[in-house]
Design a protein around this nucleic acid. Structure first.
Lengths: 319, 319
DNA sequence: TTGTAAGCGTTATCAA
DNA sequence: TTGATAACGCTTACAA
């Protein structure tokens, strides 16, 4: 396989000139340029990008950490990131963690080893101190409010969203409200639970642990939720569901079991995915693609910034 | 940032010895090893993996081309690939093409430039000749039958699956059968259409172009299908739907419009995703995760092989 | 406008 | 067991 030196020899020029042609630098005579181009054709030459990386100390590769890609929330975030990556001529390295810290560490390690220029962590499992230790190796962007931490982030105010949604339900007359969430730990989940408890406190309502359903990620998880609710003596009259997928699953399940929506139970989904429009589910719109695009921009900018994204309640038929 | 030479100096050994320690080679005295390890600690040393790549000519990176990651079919394929990648200490570089050939070319270019060791193409847009031209740069694995082409592949027999499913419907008394598909072009789509036409011919049934619904990718696309069917004078009595997502969307839509399933229209989905079990949809199970795992194995093996995966019809309530 | 030569940080070969 | 030293293939001062 030919390299830049072979080309130089063939074209009767120096390697520098070849490099200039390769990188579209000015100050190359048409004549020599032509000779180089011909040599490239003749040898079927292809740059060894690893040599470029080594020489430049950059890879044009951005790492993306997410628990799973087969969930619309993360898939849409990824879509936004990928869109910007394409426009800016970057490639993405994917780390599917299944929330395993060890896999997150692998991504951080790639940053250490300079295989990626920056790292976007869509959902964090490891401690903040570990993140901070790795900032010396390159930008790390998170999806939670990092103001005052010297870490970049794009985020929505989960506390406020949750609180507002609960208030909305309360105003509609709901006093026994539960919620469904993916994992219980994690910064965003913690904020939502805080909002939930503050809301209950504000109106002197009791906290029932069984009103909080975790491990709700996919459509089919809606089934578990309804199964549990059916067993309850005093089921909640409304549910905040942090994923439209799960909300849709719940709606389907309620149809199956003849549970009236919103009559017997009201539902608010999250994200405003197409499925929620189709099934007429009231939802909180989160512009995930836009968030993803912003995450990418922060990853390449190098400067630390914190960007809050605003959301919108979309009133449909399930409340 | 310290490099291997600095370590050598600090530890009072040669760079070779440092390299040996770094790579767990034998033939290093405990004493020197300790000295090197101490230098590593002291300097917070981290390997520059790009130098390794350049030196070795390999990156332990596998490229994965897919049209979109926010579709269960590809997400599950990706899951299988990612699983094996993790076990074998490879990382994945993702190429979301949206079926754009230009983006597929970028992936092939990365193979040329040695940034990835192999490429898995889950759904191909470019011509076969382009693939063949790039085989010289590394293994390329496809998801369609490539027997006799000197290209590795893992695939299911879409022709047979389609034909068998049509036969099954026919035996249940259906004579006017349509089908829903993602894109009309593409090798697998072509095989399915061939099966469809052969089936019609076998029983002397007419081909109605309006019975073929394309651009059916997501849940919400089921709506379009039903909208069109409702307008038909002579709607099909059964539908083969190449994605459980779309099948589920169709089922939901039929409920909304009071269309009886399977009474007025029978449905067979594809993939056996959780949603199909939950909604009791008859479906063709395709072991996508297993397929993904096999794709990865072929990518790293270097040998050319063609692996057909078998499928199973799961009878539920929509036929 | 062109070229020389010094990096970039490893690994691999070979001799000691 | 150890160490010089030559790759690996490109970019980039610097000099001309």
């Amino acid at each position: 396989m030919a390299n830049i030196r072979d080309l130089a020899k063939m074209a009767g020029v120096s390697v520098t000139t070849v490099s200039r042609v390769l990188n579209h630098h000015p100050y190359v005579s048409e004549e020599k340029k032509k000779a180089v181009l011909e040599a490239i054709k003749a040898t079927n030459y292809h740059k060894n990008i690893n040599a470029v990386h080594l020489s430049k100390g950059k890879t044009k590769l951005i790492g993306v950490v997410l628990p799973f890609s087969d969930h619309p929330y993360f898939a849409l975030l990824l879509k936004g990131i990928a869109k910007q990556a394409l426009e800016n001529n970057y490639k993405l390295v994917l780390f599917q963690t299944d929330y395993m810290e060890s896999r997150e560490m692998e991504a951080l390690q790639m940053l250490e080893q300079k295989q990626i220029d920056a790292l976007i962590i869509c959902s964090r499992s490891c401690g903040l101190s570990i993140i901070k230790e790795h900032l010396q190796f390159g930008p790390i962007i998170l999806c939670e409010n990092m103001k005052g931490h010297q870490i970049s982030s794009t985020f929505v105010n989960h506390y406020k969203i949750f609180f507002d949604a609960l208030m909305y339900l309360y105003q509609k007359g709901h006093k026994t409200i539960g919620y469904c969430i993916g994992r219980k730990s994690g910064a965003n989940s913690w904020n939502r639970d805080r909002a939930y408890r503050d809301f209950l406190k504000k109106y002197g309502l009791p906290y029932y642990p069984e009103y909080v359903f975790d491990q709700c990620f996919h459509f089919e998880d809606g089934e578990k939720v309804i199964d549990q609710i059916k067993k309850m003596d005093k089921p909640p009259s409304a549910l905040l569901v942090t994923s439209d997928q799960v909300a849709a699953g719940i709606v389907i399940c309620c149809q199956k079991h003849q549970i009236a929506i919103p009559g017997e139970i009201a539902i608010i989904g999250f994200d405003n995915e197409p499925i929620s429009r189709m099934m007429n589910i009231t939802t909180v719109e989160i512009p995930l693609v836009e968030m993803g695009e912003n995450l990418f921009r922060q990853a390449v900018s190098g400067e630390i910034s914190n960007h809050e994204i605003s959301v919108k309640l979309i009133e449909r038929g399930t409340v």
